[in-house]
Structures are given as C-alpha cells and as structure tokens.
Amino acid sequence: MQIDWVVVISQIVNFLILVWLLKHFLYGPITNAMENRRQAIKDQIKEAQQREEIAEDKVREYEEKVRQLEQQREEFLEKARTEAEQNHEELLEAARREVEALEERWRENLREERESFLRELRDRMGERVCAVAREVLSDLADTELQQQIVSVFVERLGALDEESLRDLRDAVKEVDRAPVMTSAFELSAADRERIENALRSALGSETTIKFRQSEDLRCGLELSIGGRKISWSIEGYLDSLEESISETLHREADEDADTDEPREAETATTTGESQGE
C-alpha cells in the first residue's frame, strides 16, 4: 500500500477538472431546467387559480341571474294567478248579477202578467156583473118601475140639504140654459108634472125644464144643470158595485204579492249560501 504522490496530485487535478466540467454540463443545466419548470408550474397554477376565481365569479354571477329570473318568474306567475282569480271573481259576479237581473226581469214579467191578467179579469168580471145587472134591469124596466124611479128621484130631491140646494140654484142662475131632465123611457105627463113640481119647489118657480130620452141611462133619471148632475139611476149602483168588486180584487192581488215577498227572501238567502261555498 504505497501512495504515489504524482498520481495523487494528478488525481486531485483530474477531480477538480471533473468538478468544473460537471458543474457546467450537469448541475447547472439540470438545476436551471428544474428551476424553470418549477417556476412554469407555479405560474400555471397561479394562472389556473386566477381562471378558477374568474370562473367562480362567473358561476356566482349566473347563479344570481338565474335566481333573479326565478324570482321574476314567480312574481309573474303570482301576478297572473291573482289576475286570473280576479277575472274569475269578476266574471262570476257579472254572471251572478246577470242571472239575478234575468230572474228579476222574469219575476217582473210574471208579476206584470199576473197583474194584467188580474186587471183584465177584474174588468171583465165587473163588466160582466154590471152587464148582467143592466140586462136584468132593462128587462124589468117598465112604466111601473118608471113611476117608482120618479118617486125615488123626487124623494131624493126633497131630501137634499140646504147647501146642495143652494149650489143647484146658483148653478141654475149661472147657466143660462134650462136644466135637462134625462130619462131612459118616455115619461108620462103625470110623471113630468111631479118632477116639474118637485124641481120648482126646490130650485125656484120660474124654472123651465127640458125633457130628454136616452137609452144610455138604461133605467133611471138624471138632472143636469150646467156641469152639475143629480141622478138616480141603476148606472150609479152599477158603477159603485164595479168599483167595490175591482177594489176587492185589487186588494186580493196585493195580498198575493205580499205573500210572495217572503218566498223571494228565502231564495235570496239560499243563493247567498251557495256563494259562500
């Protein structure tokens, strides 16, 4: 084991040369390359992070937009729903009103129809009753009845109170015409005299009287002085009879209408309940 110092020194030189060579051909380039790559990767990671951040921002932005759209949609839907409900309500209300109006009109028509029917019935009845009465009286009318009628007329004229008599006298004075005595039949002379006497005692002695015959009167007597009339005739009775009949019938019709009222109210409440449902 000998140390050859020449070899030692040459090996030291060799080693130092190798150190220098490897430093230039191996460590330097490799270290640089690694450092460069490390830097590149770092840059890439940084870039990727930035991109990720941007992407996240974008995602957040879009999420926000989507959320807003969703909200808007909800609002629109809600609005549409409300409007539809409102429309529905309005339509229902209009339909209800229309139905009510129709019902009202129908009721009105019904009432009018009934009333007109009742009125007609009333009139016909009155007319018929009167016609019957007139027919009967006309058939029965004769001289005897005439005399009886004259008696009744004279009696009534005598029974007039003072005020009525004064009115009549005033009327005679005002009107410059003779009082007209209308009768259904030809009056006999005795009857004419009786009437003239009665009138003269009532109105004044100088009164002249015109006598006239009229079929319209049927049976009875009528004294007309200007606008005033004093009469006894079956017509008057018949008129009052007609009036009373029509009154009775009207009252009955009104009572019918009154009994109808609660029924309507009842139907109104039932419709109210159905609305609630």
Binding site: D4, V7, V8, I12, F15
Partner: peptide
C-alpha cells in the same frame, strides 16, 4: 489508495 487519498485531501 492514491485516488482515495487525493479525494480525502480535497
């Protein structure tokens, strides 16, 4: 030994 001595010296 010369080589190792050279390295050791270094």
């Amino acid at each position: 030994i010369s080589t190792t001595a050279a390295l050791a010296l270094c």
